[in-house]
């Protein structure tokens, strides 16, 4: 199959959604002539014009509000927040408006909007341009949270998110934009809330999100040489969460770990651990459920410090090996 980068896959999804539906448009900072800070919308201005690829002033709350209002009034906006860190400036519109209007109005209105944003560290952008804040949104009823880990998922999940009639927080990863993978040319949808087993194995279940899925794959490639098989499970949609495949996997392997980049304390991993521990998989556990996640510090600038802050391939290898060998 043809290969595209993660950024190209997103762009193709955006192009196909905008071609198919005149209600879909993009709005964000520097998404027009500049093509987006990470190039996702490059070329779309020429194709769709400034009326549908809307460059905004530096006004994140305004962007979020514009999406909420346009969605309430019949459009299907796709907003871009240049760095996930800046979503902090939009919280009122997302948490108190987008997420709640439908419920507050007795199930009457809907807010079909997608807000895309790149999270994650690894680019030396330091503490204010490297956040992984997805779990803030997981905590908010009314929002959906999607985190694609491959080019294939990026396109399929984006098209499904644009089709969805709810506000979707769509979390991309800066380091994934240039990674390549097979992507079909025709439009396709990956249904939201479908957790996927992305690699089968019998010894340790590794629940991973975003860039940690590819790091877990690399770890699995190494560990298989030692006879240790990882089963990698990617939730893809964090909220609403499809936990059945996770629980089934743990019943099979008896050992589980969660890997994500966001800070461990209060992170998504805690929810996964709780779901496993309170399910029938509990009886199958042969070891404690482990978490591997970001350290409880802001992301530092220096390359080595930055690297040491979030899980790397060798960390996953070490942790999974201990689990598989019964060292806990």
């Amino acid at each position: 199959m043809r290969e595209l980068t993660y950024a190209e896959a997103l762009r193709e999804g955006l192009r196909q959604a905008m071609t198919a539906d005149s209600r879909v448009f993009m709005i964000g900072e520097d998404i027009g002539v500049y093509g987006g800070a990470f190039g996702v919308s490059a070329g779309l201005l020429a194709e769709f014009g400034a009326e549908r690829i809307i460059d905004t002033p530096i006004s994140e709350a305004g962007i979020a509000g514009a999406c909420v209002g346009a969605a309430l009034a019949g459009m299907r906006p796709v907003g871009e927040i240049q760095f996930m860190d800046f979503v902090t400036l939009t919280m009122e519109q997302l948490v108190l408006q987008a997420a709640k209007v439908r419920f507050m109005f007795g199930g009457k209105a809907s807010v079909p909007m997608v807000l895309r944003m790149p999270g994650g560290s690894g680019t030396g952008a330091a503490a204010q341009h490297s956040e992984s804040l997805e779990n803030w949104f997981v905590h908010v009823p009314g929002l959906k949270v999607v985190m694609p880990s491959t080019p294939y998922d990026a396109k399929g999940l984006l098209l499904a998110s644009i089709d969805d009639n709810n506000p979707v927080i769509f979390v991309e990863h800066k380091l994934l934009y240039k990674t390549k993978g097979p992507v079909p040319e025709e439009p396709y949808r990956i249904p939201l809330s479908q957790t996927q087993v992305v690699r089968e194995g019998k010894h340790v279940t590794v629940v991973a999100t975003s860039i940690m899925v590819s790091r877990a794959q690399q770890a699995a490639d190494e560990l298989v040489k030692e006879g240790i098989e990882l089963e990698i499970v990617d939730p893809r949609t964090l909220k609403p969460l499809d936990d059945a495949p996770i629980i089934e996997s743990v019943k099979k392997t008896g050992r589980a770990m969660v890997v994500h980049e966001a800070v461990e304390m209060g992170g998504f991993g805690g929810e996964i651990v709780a779901r496993i521990a309170s399910s029938e998989a509990f009886d199958y556990l042969e070891a404690p459920i482990r978490r591997l996640a970001g350290k409880d510090i802001p992301i530092p600038y220096n390359r080595e410090l930055e690297r040491a802050t979030v899980p790397q391939v060798e960390d996953i290898i070490a942790e999974a090996r201990k689990l598989a060998r019964g060292e806990y």
């Binding site: 709350a61 514009a66 209002g69 309430l72 019949g74 408006q97």
Partner: peptide, 9 residues
Amino acid sequence: PISTGVGLS
């Protein structure tokens, strides 16, 4: 901010 979005629509 929502009214601006409605206006945009």
